[in-house]
Simulated assay, not measured.
Amino acid sequence: MQPADFQLEDTGDGGAVLRLVGDWTTTGVGPAARRLAGRVGASPVKRLDLSELGRFDTAGALILVHAAPGLLPESAWADRPEAGRIYAMVEALERESAPPPRRADALTRTFAKIGLGVYDIGHEMMMSMAFFGRLMEAALAALRRPGSIRWPAWFSQAERAGLDAMPIIAVTNFFIGAVIAFLGANLLTQFGAGVFTVQLVAVATLRELAVLITAILLAGRSASSFAAEIGSMRMNQEVDAMQVMGVNPFQALVIPRLAALVLMLPLLTFIGMLSGFLGGMVVTWSQLSYGPAFFIQRISDDPMMGTHLMVGLVKAPVFAVVIAGIGCRQGMSVAGDVESLGRRVTAAVVQAIFAIILLDAIFALIFLELNL
C-alpha cells in the first residue's frame, strides 16, 4: 500500500490542477487529508491528474468533497471512471444530507434539564407508589394464606440481611458512641457538668444515632444487594420465567426480603444501642474516671430512658420497609443491560439513604409535637 499524497499546481487562469498520488483509502488518507484541507481554497480545483492514483474509496472521495467545494466535472475523472462514480455518489449524499440541528442556547438547555429532572422525579414517585401498592397487596395475600409463605427464603434473607450485618453494626455504633462521649467530655467539663456526658450519650444513642446509623448501613448493604440480586434475575429473564410458571415474583422475591428487614432491623438497632453505650462507657471511664457501675446507674435512674428507647425502636420497622421496598423496586425496574443494573443499584442506595434521613426528620417533628 502506497500512502496517499498530492501535488497542487496553479494553472495561471485562476484554477489549479490537483495530482493525486498513492492510495486514497480509509487506511492511508489521514496525513494527506489534513494537508490538503489547508492548501485548497485559494485556487479552485478545475482539473485532476489521476495518472499516479492507486486505490480509491469513499473515504478519499469524502476528503475531496470537503477540500474542494463544488462538484468536479465528470471529464476530470475520464482516466478513472470508477473513481468518478464513487466521488459523484459521495458528493450527492453529502449535498443532500440535512444540516446538523442547531444547538440550543445555554439558558434553554438549563431549563430543559430542570424540566427533565422534575419529570423524572414525578415518574419515580408514581412508579414507587404503584410498586408499594402491589407490595401491600402481596403482603395482605401472604397474611391471608400463611401456608403459601416460603419460610426457608424468609430465614435465609434474615440471616444474610440481619445476622451477617451484626459485626459492622456493632463496631460502627461503638465508635459513634465513643465520639459523642469525647465531645461531651470535652465540652461539658468546661462548665463543670461532665457527669451529664452519660445522659448525652444515652439520649443521642437511643433516640437518633443507633437507629439512624444502622438504617444507613443497611441501606448501603441490603438495598444495593436486593437491587443487584433481583436486577440480575430480571436480566436473565428469571422473573419472567417465574410468572410463566405461575409464581408471583412479589411473593417469591420481595416479601421475604421485606419481612427479613422488618424483623431484623429492630434487633440490629438494639444491638447498636448497646454498642453505643459500650463506646460511651469506655470513654467516660478513661477520660472522666466514671466507672461502668456509675454509667449504668445514671442511665437506669433517668425515668425518660424508656421513652427514648421506644422512640428509637419505633422508627426501625418503618426504615426497614423503606429500605427493602426501595431496593426491591429498583431491582424490578432493571432493563436487560448491565448499565441499567448499575444505575438502579446506585439509585437504590441514594434513594434509601435520602428517604431515611427525610423520615427521621419527620419523626423528630412528630415526637416534638407529642412531647416525647
Rank of each mutant, 00 (worst) to 15 (best):
V203M: 14
M304Q: 13
M281T: 09
M304S: 12
R234M: 10
T108I: 13
Y290S: 09
V349A: 00
V45H: 04
F175Q: 05
V314C: 09
Q237F: 10
P152S: 03
M126C: 10
P73F: 07
G184I: 01
M310W: 15
S275A: 15
F182I: 13
V29W: 06
V21W: 02
T307K: 06
R344I: 05
L218P: 01
L278S: 04
L341P: 03
V345C: 00
D49P: 05
S156M: 13
V318M: 02
M304H: 11
K113F: 12
A16T: 07
G192F: 10
Q237K: 14
I353C: 00
L143E: 02
A355Y: 08
S340Q: 04
T284M: 00
R102A: 12
L253P: 07
P81W: 06
S300V: 14
I357R: 01
R234G: 09
R257V: 04
G122P: 06
V247G: 00
D5M: 03
Q2G: 09
S333V: 12
T25W: 12
R257E: 09
D105G: 15
L187E: 08
A32T: 11
I271G: 04
L274D: 04
E238D: 00
D79W: 12
P256D: 01
W77D: 10
A185R: 03
G276P: 09
F319W: 05
W285L: 08
T110G: 11
F196C: 03
A219W: 13
L18I: 02
V65M: 03
S128F: 15
R134W: 06
V17Q: 09
N173M: 08
M242S: 02
S156W: 15
F175H: 08
G41I: 05
K315F: 06
G41V: 08
M89Q: 15
A193F: 11
G30L: 11
L217D: 00
N236C: 07
T346Q: 07
S275F: 14
P3H: 05
M242Q: 13
E124A: 14
A355H: 08
P101C: 01
V21P: 02
A202W: 11
V338T: 12
S224F: 02
T205I: 15
A138I: 05
S222H: 06
A42D: 14
G194I: 04
L218K: 04
A98S: 12
M273Y: 03
E82D: 15
G117H: 00
N186K: 08
G30Y: 13
L278N: 01
V262W: 03
L50K: 04
T25Y: 10
G41A: 15
E339M: 12
R329Q: 15
G28I: 12
V345W: 05
V118G: 07
L53N: 02
